[in-house]
Design a protein around this nucleic acid. Sequence first.
DNA 1: CAGGTC
DNA 2: GCTGG
Length: 296
Amino acid sequence: MACLALKLKLDGVPFNLDVTLCCGQVFRWRQLGGWWYGVVGEHVFKVRQVGNEVFYANVDESMVKRYFSLDHDLERIRLRTCRDAYVRQAFERFWGLRLIRQDPWECLISYVSAAWRNIPAINRSLQALAQAHGEKLSYDGQVFYAFPTPERLACVTEKSLRNCGLGYRARYIHEIAQQVSSGAFTLKRLRGMPYAQAWDELTVLRGVGPKVADCVLLFAFEKLEAFPVDVWVARVLKAHYARYMPEAVAKLAGGALSPSAYAKIGASARAYFGEYAGYAQQYLYHNERTCMQTRK
DNA sequence: CAGGTC
DNA sequence: GCTGG
């Protein structure tokens, strides 16, 4: 079915669609013929930006605004978060990057599958997973796949999950799907919880450690104080934040972080960057990945 | 060597 | 410990 594209005027609201979709927070978006195509829940839609206007089709405006968090006061976040020249420069470079409100289930499985792998490999196995077990959807003459539901993944064999390139993570994903589909674990419940409590709940799941929990809370549950620390963010902190949070950076000296060390780094980052620490994290993460590729 | 975890 | 880029 042909869908008419509608137009949303940003009217001064800062937004950069390309950076928002390319900064590594979300997977499975595809660029085709000048449009970005994405599947959110069971719904395919497309979107593109030309200057101060956002065009979209097969979706309503409120959904676009909600998904891309256009209601976040980015100017306020910038003022509140930019405590030093380094993070300020990252905000300037990628101004308009917004944290997306992802589907919690897909986000959870995405970041469980992301542990200790590079982004191309993550994209590949998430696509394979959707293609093998998700509902087939057609739009604009293209084929897309919804992300497989918990019920569906609970019925799939672990071996079938391994065939999607998930390696040993297949076991965690299978187990989590069973817990969620049976009702033993409820994702919706996390919505109303404060950050720390939701973090405690999530890390009960096998395959969900401190870092994965922070990603899910930041990208799907709008806990903007969550500060995921991965290898890239650890590099930024070591290189540029030793004088602002010395005790946290000292803990990054060795290899793997203990849960308590990870928690202290998060607490320091929240104390320093404030209630929107997650925004600082995403700007710094993307900045590090795009500008410092060759650094060890 | 990878958006860490058991 | 899997395993692809």
